[in-house]
């Protein structure tokens, strides 16, 4: 039995009367890849926002490695080991690609004002390590984000490369769990197949546990161990891809209720 990393109990949130999430139960084990799917507006992104501390739940609890994440600021959640990407890519567009990834290591590094002013040996050492780690993370995506690109602003990147850089930035925080919000959205089939493979490597080579929101069913099918289906803020099904994809409730949620047979 693998170790339980993240447990979510009876989590609810309301936005002024709208129940974005209702009594949600959820868990992730170490080394798992879990996909969260559901129709638009089901509350998937809200679910991520909740875990990463950007939205406060109205009730329920989030337990990560045995400790509650409730009441922590987003930066504390990241420091605890949960990193995320954003559905609507939110890079630091005017910082360079290298800086985007370097800045993400903030919570894993210590040097402050004095180190920088006195140029202490430990400061220089740390800067070097930050840079090396950044380049290591970026080279995970081949040569796309390294070389002459390192010093270009993130704004010049293509859409797909921005998504990759978002993942790199999340990786750079040295997390245990990465939350990916629609990582292949906007990519062509070839690119998304390549990224799907990389997501597998994130687990096998880097040892990350992954929770992924995705609309592209081929990606979901190819990498996930388990699929959780949300609709109207509630879990309506859970299990392997095969189980879920044949579940009538899920089909109903996606396709709508079949017209009642008229009497």
């Amino acid at each position: 039995m693998r170790q339980r990393l993240l447990t979510i109990n009876k989590l609810s949130v309301t936005f002024g009367g709208l129940h974005a999430l209702k009594d949600l139960d959820f868990h992730v084990d170490e080394g798992e890849i879990v996909s969260v799917i559901g129709p638009n507006g089901a509350g998937k992104t809200t679910f991520f926002n909740m875990i990463s501390g950007m939205v406060t739940p109205t009730s329920g609890d989030i337990i990560f490695k045995g400790e509650s994440l409730l009441g922590l600021d987003p930066n504390q959640v990241t420091a605890a080991g949960i990193a995320r990407t954003f559905q609507n890519v939110r890079l630091f567009a005017n910082m360079t690609i290298l800086e985007n990834v370097m800045v993400a290591q903030h919570c894993r590094t210590r040097q402050g004002i004095w180190g920088a002013l006195l140029q202490t040996r430990s400061f220089k050492q740390e800067e070097r390590e930050i840079r090396e780690h950044a380049e290591l993370v970026l080279s995970f995506f081949g040569t796309r984000l390294v070389g002459y690109r390192l010093d270009q602003p993130a704004a010049v990147l293509s859409y797909a490369n921005r998504r990759r850089l978002e993942i790199a930035r999340a990786m750079a925080t040295r997390p245990t769990v990465i939350l990916l919000d629609e990582p292949v959205a906007g990519m062509n089939p070839k690119e998304s197949a390549a990224l799907t493979q990389l997501i597998g490597e994130l687990r096998s080579d880097w040892g990350f546990t992954i929770v992924m929101i995705e609309h592209d069913m081929s990606v979901v099918r190819d990498v996930s161990d388990r699929v959780v289906v949300l609709d109207h803020g509630e879990t309506i099904a859970q299990g392997s891809y095969e189980e879920v994809s044949t579940n009538p409730d899920v089909i109903e949620a996606y396709l709508g209720r079949p017209a009642k047979e008229s009497a």
Binding site: N75, A83, F86, R90, F92, M102, A104, H106, A116, I130
Partner: peptide, 21 residues
Amino acid sequence: SRLGRAWMAIREDESVAEAMG
């Protein structure tokens, strides 16, 4: 320095900077 990069990130997008630790 590390702090300077953090300032830059905050100036660009404070909530993302916060989410990046």
